[in-house]
Amino acid sequence: MKTLLLYVYLSILASQPILAQFWTKEDIKKQLPLFIRALNYPLGNDKFHLTYNITTDSIPPNHPLFKLFKNHDLYISYLLSRYSTIDYQSIFKPNTPFPQADRAFRQALTNDTLLNHCFLETATYYLKAQEIPLKDISVLPKQSLTMPTLLAVAARFFNHLETRPNDHVAWFMNLKGTPDYDASEVGNQPLIEAFCSEAIMKWSFLPEWSQLPYERRFYEEVEALTNRTALLTDAKDKRELVRPAMRDLMTHSKELEKALLTEYELSKEWLGFTLIK
């Protein structure tokens, strides 16, 4: 009996890439369908909404990528929404049987060349930071960025700002699914964008984020822009005025800089760039 149990145990270990001596591109490619799963979300009254979610429920905590998906799901979510060729609407059509949608989604994740390219880069940096051996994978040198450059990327995730009483500022994001979303406003820098998106989303989830007292000069500049915008009636004219001016303001925001720096310090070992002075 002991011999049988030992055989089963060793067989399980041998089948797990988490305990392999090294990771290959194929090992990394197999991970997305494990962590990103189709979901039949209950709406009540026996109705369901087909979608997907990022989950670590069935993944052992000692998996080398467990914390990446567990702690940085916002980062992964950005890649899924911005750098994926998956036709989500086609896969998750209403009344599609869940097993069918699940199979189609798993296959789509595997076949998505763009998404897998971005994830390969991310996972490579992440595994290397944990000193996990890689085989036949070239680790690209990290890009060097200054804070002004990072702020310029992050600023494009905002649509506009509006002043509120007591020197508070309301922020309106340029994220997929939000009104007036413009994908062209964000450049082709997936790993840097994913970092900025995650930092901004974490910041915006804080209860006090919209109640921060801003520097008086910054507040007055936002207020002046708000007043200029109020004189315009055409939505396109407002966008053309507000976006460039507002993003210029954001590149000088001490609050945004602090949010980016805080997130960078937490994740700098595995990010695809190095922040320099």
Rank of each mutant, 00 (worst) to 15 (best):
A123C: 15
T274R: 14
T124W: 06
P133M: 11
L19P: 00
A14Q: 14
F66V: 06
A224Q: 14
A20R: 12
I54E: 04
A155L: 01
F69I: 03
F158W: 15
Y9K: 09
L50F: 04
D73C: 00
T51Q: 11
L115P: 11
P148C: 10
A245E: 12
Q130C: 03
L13S: 02
A123M: 08
N45P: 00
L271M: 11
L10S: 13
T122S: 07
D180I: 01
Q31I: 07
I132W: 15
L120S: 07
L256K: 10
L271P: 03
K254G: 01
V186T: 08
S210Q: 12
N166R: 11
E220W: 03
T251E: 10
A152I: 01
H117F: 01
S11M: 02
L175V: 10
E208W: 12
K236M: 09
K128I: 01
N188E: 10
N71T: 00
S197A: 12
S77E: 11
N174R: 08
D73Y: 04
K93S: 12
I137C: 01
F172C: 04
L134P: 02
K135Y: 15
C118S: 07
A245W: 02
T110F: 13
M250N: 08
K67P: 00
L34Y: 09
E221I: 05
L13N: 08
S81Y: 12
K277W: 03
L266P: 00
R156N: 14
F35C: 00
S90E: 13
A245K: 07
C118A: 03
I276N: 05
T110E: 11
L65I: 05
W270H: 15
M1H: 14
Q130R: 14
I12H: 12
V153M: 05
L39H: 15
T51R: 12
I200R: 08
T251K: 13
R247Y: 12
D57Q: 14
K93G: 00
Q130W: 11
I276L: 07
D234P: 02
A199L: 07
F218T: 04
C196V: 10
P61H: 04
L5N: 01
P94G: 04
A154K: 09
M201V: 02
L266F: 02
R228F: 03
N227D: 10
A259E: 05
F172Q: 06
C196Y: 12
V222L: 14
R247E: 14
L249R: 07
